[in-house]
Write a protein that binds this DNA or RNA. Structure first.
Length: 365
DNA sequence: TACACGTGGTG
DNA sequence: TCACCAAGTGT
């Protein structure tokens, strides 16, 4: 076995092959304009923010709802932030929603409602990092920009059989993308590479046989395209515990509170609870209850997995007199209106468990 | 550079 | 059951 170096030629043919494939096999997505149509920067921006670390399937309904409610950036800029957080609830990475609103206000205020049309200017806006600034510059404004997301990383790492592990290999991958990106149709090229990564050059089972870049691909030539990209090992995820207190007033109102604007679930609404930690003491949970009440601990628990820890919550439920006042930092929300609150998914699980548990023991509605 | 930051689907 | 992953950004 010879130690052959497979080095694809960086010629227009590679980009041309990707573009040709894109013209025939591109995905139809709600935020995508036809090749001859002009892209709406607002639509491109909104979709790109939502798509950060988020699947197409998850984004679709949120994108439709946002666009229907706020058809342009100036209208979004005028919306109350709480409205935006509510509309974003369930999509995750909530700092994106805060930055989305901040960005809309900047564009409406400083740029008269029109997004800046260069990568450098876009990069200065909140929520726009290297990927998103390049993507908008290329897709919405036809600028030649190196668009590198997770898909492109994978495709390019395979194309060049890059052996260096991520994230250190990012600089090299970026150089390769920079060299590959054509001056003509840079936006379509970027989307072609992303579609390739999403549908052909997939993480587990790449469909090399039908890949338009097959003849260019060193990873394929190596016989083991799945080896690329090489990744550094991940840290293990700690298990945290805590408790939540579902308090229902006699008139059906539920005690809720809004989390601080920054950090985990920043600015979102929650059912009050203890702090979450690895050394949570279940026996001492009631000491952290937000309000005095005859709590009953449910048998069922709520489990939820965040990016960097797994959480198990004990659920306490209680009925309380109609005259009870909300403690500092909390407020009452009508149970029927909880759907409309900016409840993150983990808190929707808490509400669901409390309702189910409450009924089971005959204490409920 | 490394870590915080959500969620739901998938093999 | 569980690790992996999906159009990353901010600090």
């Amino acid at each position: 076995m010879y130690d052959v170096v497979h080095e694809p030629l960086i010629t227009p043919s590679c980009a041309a092959a990707a573009l040709d494939w894109y013209d025939r096999h591109r995905r139809a997505l709600p935020w995508r304009s036809e090749p001859h149509e002009k892209a709406d920067p607002y639509v491109v921006w909104l979709s790109e923010i939502m798509l950060q670390q988020t699947t197409v399937a998850a984004v679709k309904p949120y994108f439709a709802a946002f666009l229907a409610r706020w058809p342009n950036v100036s209208l979004l800029a005028q919306a109350p932030i709480d409205e935006v957080m509510r509309q974003w609830a369930g999509l995750g990475y909530y700092s994106r929603a805060r930055n989305l609103h901040a960005c809309a206000k900047r564009v409406a205020g400083e740029f008269d409602g029109r997004f800046p049309d260069t990568e450098a200017a876009l990069r200065k806006l909140p929520g726009l990092g290297p990927y998103t600034a390049a993507a908008i510059a290329a897709i919405a404004f036809g600028r030649r920009a190196a668009v590198v997301d997770g898909n492109v990383e994978r495709v390019v790492a395979r194309l060049f059989a890059i052996a260096a592990p991520l994230p250190a290999a990012r600089a090299l991958i970026r150089e390769k993308v920079e060299a590959l990106t054509p001056s003509a149709r840079p936006g379509d090229f970027a989307q072609a590479m992303m579609d390739l990564g999403a549908t052909i050059c997939t993480p587990k089972q790449p469909a090399c046989a039908i890949c338009p870049l097959l003849d260019h691909c060193a990873g394929r030539a190596s016989g083991e395209p799945r080896r690329f990209p090489v990744k550094a090992p991940k840290r293990e995820r700690p298990r945290w515990r805590g408790a939540a207190f579902f308090v229902r007033r006699a008139d059906g109102a539920i005690l809720v509170r809004t989390r601080p604007p920054k950090g985990l679930l920043g600015g979102m609404v929650e059912i009050p609870g203890t702090a979450w930690s690895a050394d949570f003491d279940p026996g001492a949970a009631l000491r952290e209850a937000p309000i005095h009440a005859p709590y009953r601990k449910l048998e069922s628990v709520v489990e939820h997995v965040f990016t960097h820890f797994a959480l198990r919550l004990d659920i306490y439920v209680a009925e309380i007199a109609r005259t009870s006042r909300a403690p500092a930092g909390c407020r009452w929300a009508l149970e029927g209106d909880l759907d409309k609150e900016a409840l993150p998914s983990v808190m929707r699980k808490v509400v669901e468990a409390a309702r189910k548990g409450g009924k089971l023991f005959g204490g409920g509605d």
